[in-house]
Design a binder for these strands. Structure first.
Lengths: 155, 155
DNA sequence: TATTGTTATACTCTATAACTATA
DNA sequence: TATAGTTATAGAGTATAACAATA
């Protein structure tokens, strides 16, 4: 990112011009997201954990009996996708889904014992990875970054 | 996000516990990214523009003759996907792809006149949308946020 | 042999809408 | 009629690896 450098795409040492995208939150968040996933798979892939289902399991563990809809809202994914993910986690024996008697439309989700062991083993790996990712931010910057990210998303 | 509230997923007014994810850069960036795409499609969908190809066209416009590989690096997407995207943009008449005589392995990309008009018309819409997105950040916060995002991604 | 790009395949994630069951 | 979730289908994005052409 050197705006003063004349762009010459044939010169491999030349930086390319981003034409304003370097100041676009949307573009930069997309780029950051690619980096996050890349690092996640590189470091945590060997344990077979994936970002989406790991987040779901962590939230289910902290909110026993949470409904499909509430979980979908929390993870910002569509209910249809949530169903697929939870049925998959159920078939792996990590979660249990039950319809309460008072409203049989609802599906409540709990971790199984296997699911609890899975979270106890893998959640620390996720958090350790997240805080040690080589992202070039100082501790103070990371703190500010997290606050801004939360405010940005209305979380 | 109220850690002091007892979690009760059946009470719709209760906040859910994120169990540490609320302090994870990776999780928060994923959530932010969902918000960015959602807003993008809501506001700019009617013009038929999409985030990936719009970014590509903007960068091509600013770096005439840029190679497939350099563009893929800039957008953090795989070369195989870049090829698909550029062939699609070529079939829409927005870009021209040519192999230079001095190294016939290379493919250089330029905007066509139609592509230039397309960018002239739609890039301002993208930037206007990006700066006016209702993300709750003040101008000063947005500035700091952009700097942190760039540092985070090594851009 | 190494580099640049292409093709093919498969998998994940997402969007949408029609559907079932229940309230 | 409205709500919670399910199913089916299609599309976008991505990963991977095998491939062709050129250097």
């Amino acid at each position: 990112m050197k705006p003063e450098t004349a762009p010459d795409p044939r010169d491999m040492t030349a930086e390319i011009e981003f034409g304003g995208l370097e100041d676009s939150c949307g573009f930069l968040i997309t780029i950051a997201q690619v980096y996050v996933f890349e690092q996640f798979h590189e470091v945590l892939g060997k344990y077979g954990i994936r970002p989406g289902s790991m987040s779901a399991l962590i939230i289910i563990g902290r909110n026993p009996g949470i409904r499909h809809g509430a979980l979908a809202d929390a993870l910002r994914i569509k209910l249809a996708h949530m169903t697929k993910m939870l049925k998959s986690l159920e078939s792996e024996g990590l979660v249990r889904r039950t319809a309460p008697p008072h409203d049989r439309r609802i599906v409540e989700v709990h971790l199984t014992d296997k699911g609890k062991r899975y979270v106890a083993e893998n959640a620390p790996r996720l958090f350790e990875h997240d805080s040690s990712r080589p992202d070039g931010l100082t501790a103070a910057e990371k703190k500010r970054f997290i606050k801004l990210l939360r405010k940005f998303s209305g979380l």
